[in-house]
Amino acid sequence: MTYKAILNGKTLKGETTTEAVDAATAEKVFKQYANDNGVDGEWTYDDATKTFTVTE
């Protein structure tokens, strides 16, 4: 399944996708990606669109 992350960081804005077996696995991948890029904020998840959003 393909999951998407939308990054609304102070220094990084954009989107990325990952293939994962479930939302929990995708969330770990996206949170690591955000952390590696200095983005730390509030996370939300929309199951209907399989989209995570982080906003700083």
Rank of each mutant, 00 (worst) to 15 (best):
D47T: 09
G38K: 07
A23L: 09
L12T: 10
G41A: 04
N8H: 09
T49V: 05
D22A: 04
F52Q: 00
E42P: 05
K4S: 06
E27W: 15
A26E: 01
Y33I: 08
Y33M: 07
Q32K: 14
T51W: 01
V29M: 09
A26G: 01
G41D: 02
N8Y: 11
K13W: 11
K31I: 07
K13I: 10
T17N: 06
G38L: 06
A23N: 06
I6N: 05
T18Y: 11
F52L: 00
V21M: 13
D46P: 01
T2Q: 10
A20W: 02
F30H: 00
K50W: 06
Q32M: 10
T17I: 09
G38F: 07
G9C: 14
T51A: 03
Y33H: 04
N8A: 07
G41C: 04
A24I: 11
K31L: 07
T17H: 10
V21I: 13
A34Y: 06
K50C: 05
E15P: 04
V39P: 01
G41V: 03
A26R: 01
T55M: 07
A48T: 12
E56I: 08
N35H: 14
A5D: 03
A24C: 13
T11D: 10
T44L: 08
K50G: 05
G41Y: 05
D47S: 12
D46T: 04
K28F: 08
T11K: 11
K31P: 00
D47R: 08
T51D: 00
Y3G: 02
E56K: 03
Y33D: 01
T55S: 09
V39A: 04
A5S: 04
A20M: 02
I6V: 10
A20T: 05
F30L: 06
K28N: 08
E27P: 00
L12M: 13
V21F: 12
A20N: 03
D22W: 02
Y3I: 03
A23C: 13
V54L: 14
N37A: 12
T44P: 01
L7E: 02
L12V: 13
A24G: 08
V54G: 02
Y3R: 02
V21T: 11
A5P: 03
E19Y: 15
T51S: 05
L12R: 08
D22Y: 03
K10T: 11
E42V: 14
K4R: 13
Y45G: 01
A24K: 11
T55F: 08
F52E: 00
Y45K: 01
V39L: 13
W43M: 04
N37H: 14
A34M: 08
E56G: 06
T2A: 07
T16F: 15
K31A: 05
G9A: 07
A48E: 13
Y45I: 01
D46E: 06
W43I: 04
Y45D: 01
K10E: 07
L7W: 15
A26Y: 00
V21D: 11
V29K: 08
E15S: 11
I6P: 02
F52Y: 05
Y3M: 03
A34N: 01
T17C: 12
L12N: 07
K13F: 10
N35Q: 15
F52M: 01
D36R: 10
Q32Y: 05
W43K: 00
A20P: 01
T25C: 08
T11A: 10
T16R: 11
T11H: 13
T53P: 00
E15V: 14
T16E: 05
T49L: 07
A48P: 07
K50F: 09
A34S: 04
A5H: 03
L7V: 09
A48V: 11
A48F: 10
K10Y: 11
T16A: 12
A26S: 01
G9D: 02
V54R: 02
L12Q: 07
A20F: 02
I6C: 07
T17R: 08
T2L: 14
K13N: 08
A26L: 00
G9V: 09
T17P: 02
G14L: 15
F52V: 00
V54M: 14
G14E: 10
T25Y: 07
W43T: 01
N37M: 15
N35I: 15
K4E: 03
G41H: 02
T17G: 04
E56M: 07
T17K: 08
Y45T: 00
E42T: 13
G9Q: 04
E56P: 07
Y45H: 01
K4I: 11
A5G: 05
V39H: 04
A34G: 03
D46I: 04
M1Y: 15
T53R: 06
T51R: 03
T16S: 07
T18L: 11
E56N: 05
W43G: 00
K10A: 12
K31C: 06
E42C: 11
N37G: 05
K28Y: 09
T55P: 01
K10V: 13
D36Q: 12
M1T: 14
A20R: 02
E19R: 13
T49E: 05
E15Q: 11
K13V: 09
K28E: 09
L7C: 07
T2H: 08
V21Y: 12
T25E: 13
A20G: 03
W43H: 00
E27H: 13
A48M: 10
T53Y: 13
Y3D: 03
D40Y: 15
I6Q: 05
Y45M: 00
T49M: 06
L12P: 03
T16H: 12
T16Y: 15
L12Y: 15
E56Y: 12
D47V: 10
Q32P: 01
A34W: 06
T53K: 05
D47P: 14
T44K: 08
Y33K: 03
T51P: 00
V54S: 02
K10R: 13
T51Q: 04
K4P: 02
D47F: 09
V54C: 13
D46Q: 04
Y33S: 00
K31H: 08
T55Q: 07
K4A: 05
F30P: 00
G38Y: 06
Y45W: 04
G41K: 01
N35K: 15
D22F: 04
T44R: 08
E56S: 08
V29I: 15
T11P: 04
E27F: 15
N8V: 12
T44W: 07
Q32C: 06
M1N: 13
G41W: 06
T18V: 14
V54F: 15
K4C: 07
M1F: 15
V29W: 14
G14Q: 12
E42Q: 11
W43P: 01
L7T: 02
T25V: 08
Y3E: 03
Y3Q: 03
G14K: 13
T55A: 05
A20Q: 06
K13G: 05
T16P: 03
I6A: 04
T49S: 10
N37Q: 12
G9N: 04
T25M: 11
G14M: 15
E27L: 15
T49K: 06
A26F: 01
G38T: 03
A24H: 09
M1A: 13
A5E: 04
T51E: 03
Q32H: 06
K50P: 00
V29Y: 15
Y3C: 04
K13R: 12
V54K: 01
D46S: 05
F30Y: 01
L12S: 07
D40I: 14
K13P: 04
E56L: 07
T2F: 10
G9P: 03
G14Y: 14
M1D: 13
A34P: 00
K28W: 09
M1L: 12
N37F: 14
G9M: 10
T53C: 08
F30C: 01
T17A: 08
F52I: 00
T2P: 06
I6Y: 07
K10C: 14
T49I: 06
A34H: 02
D22L: 04
T49R: 06
T25D: 09
K28C: 10
Y45P: 00
A20I: 02
G14V: 14
N37P: 01
K13S: 09
I6E: 04
T16D: 03
K28H: 08
A24P: 08
E19N: 13
T11R: 11
T44M: 09
A24E: 12
Y33A: 03
M1E: 12
Q32A: 11
A20S: 07
